[in-house]
């Protein structure tokens, strides 16, 4: 339930990033990418590729002209990350950065490929791809860094010290 709320919040934020008054580069950050790399890096249960599919469908409903390509792209990115993640032992912020970049790149490319036969694909430029990958990577790295800080544990330790 908490995850669903998080997804809805992130997608709402994604819509907000594309607000006309906001800077252009903000809309290039793919916020839901953290949901497809986090399970692999945090050793979650294996049903999450299906969760990525649901995530993609919600993405399509909110952001895409048709339902389907987003689900394909997000689930494909999730599957690839799940296959690559066990090969890497590192779970530091750098891993979050790298997998964030990988997930974003996969999502953009596969979404473009899925839209191509439908006649809805726009021109995919290197500039757009690299910018989006870089920003999403930073976003994932940020999330990974925050998770690595383990704030609840630090907060509990801080409270415990103050109570003494």
């Amino acid at each position: 339930m908490r995850l669903a709320i998080l997804v809805v919040v992130s997608l709402t934020a994604q819509v907000a990033l594309g607000w006309p008054a906001a800077p252009d580069w903000l809309s290039l950050i793919l916020l839901p990418t953290v949901f497809i790399i986090a399970p692999s890096l945090l050793h979650a249960e294996r049903r999450w590729p299906h969760f990525a599919l649901v995530l993609g469908l919600v993405w399509d409903l909110m952001l895409e002209p048709v339902v389907g390509p987003g689900a394909i792209a997000w689930s494909a990115a999730a599957v690839v990350v799940s296959l690559v993640a066990p090969l890497v032992a590192d779970r530091s912020t750098r891993a979050w950065l790298a997998f964030g970049a990988l997930g974003a790149a996969l999502m953009i490319i596969i979404r473009h490929l899925a839209l191509l036969p439908l006649g809805l694909a726009t021109t995919l430029t290197w500039e757009y791809l690299l910018t989006s990958v870089a920003l999403t990577s930073v976003w994932c790295g940020l999330v990974g860094w925050v998770i690595a800080l383990d704030l609840p544990v630090r907060w509990r330790d801080h409270r415990a010290r103050k109570l003494r």
Binding site: L53, P65, V66, V67, G68, P69, A71, I72, S75, A76, A114, P117, L118, G119, L120
Partner: peptide
């Protein structure tokens, strides 16, 4: 599932 979704999307798009 991807194939089904692609067909689902194709059913929504008009040429």
């Amino acid at each position: 599932l991807w194939v089904l979704l692609e067909f689902l999307a194709a059913a929504q798009v008009t040429s």
